[in-house]
């Protein structure tokens, strides 16, 4: 009961809050929410920068051709608040990434989940609780 009340409180606040919450850019202006793709590859670079942190992944297709993909994360301001740091993901890490593809066909995607080879999820909701996978 108490949890429901808290949820309702948060929910009502957020309903109002969304009207004035600034985002760096509109998701739907750049990415296609209907085009989700899974990538498996090796991290080649991490940019702990604003307005978005980014990481790059070498992904090999079935013919053996390697393509470097660019993945967008949130701002480091938020990632730090959630407990993540610049070295939470490292060059050479083998990861599985789910991402929304860029609308303009660039080799870019908006990362919605990043899973390390041992199953740990990086950059999810909070570093203390990675079970949500960034979704609710």
């Amino acid at each position: 009961m108490r949890i429901e009340k808290v949820l309702l409180g948060i929910s009502m606040c957020l309903l109002l809050f969304v009207e004035i919450m600034p985002a760096h850019h509109s998701f739907t202006a750049e990415y296609d929410s209907a085009k989700v793709r899974q990538f498996i590859g090796t991290v080649t670079k991490i940019e702990w920068t604003n307005p978005h942190a980014r990481f790059y992944l070498d992904v090999k297709d079935e013919r053996g051709t390697v393509t470097n993909w660019n993945f967008e994360l949130g701002t480091p301001l938020m990632l730090r608040k959630l407990g993540w740091k610049a070295d939470s993901l490292k060059v050479g890490d083998q990861v599985t990434v789910e991402g929304y593809l860029a609308k303009d066909g660039a080799k870019m995607a908006n990362a919605r989940s990043v899973t390390l080879a041992d199953g740990r999820k990086v950059f999810a909701g909070s570093s203390a609780d990675t079970t949500s996978g960034g979704k609710f």
């Binding site: 808290v6 948060i10 606040c13 957020l14 969304v18 919450m21 985002a23 760096h24 850019h25 509109s26 998701f27 739907t28 990415y31 929410s33 978005h52 942190a53 967008e72 994360l73 949130g74 701002t75 480091p76 938020m78 990632l79 608040k81 959630l82 993540w84 929304y100 908006n110 990362a111 919605r112 989940s113 990043v114 990086v122 950059f123 999810a124 909701g125 909070s126 609780d129 949500s132 960034g134 979704k135 609710f136």
Partner: peptide, 21 residues
């Protein structure tokens, strides 16, 4: 419908909720 970039890791809904709560 989705609106702003809140499925992006680090700016996802779950993260923001947990930060507020």
């Amino acid at each position: 419908g989705d609106f702003i970039s809140l499925d992006t890791l680090g700016e996802d809904r779950a993260g923001i909720r947990s930060l507020i709560s």
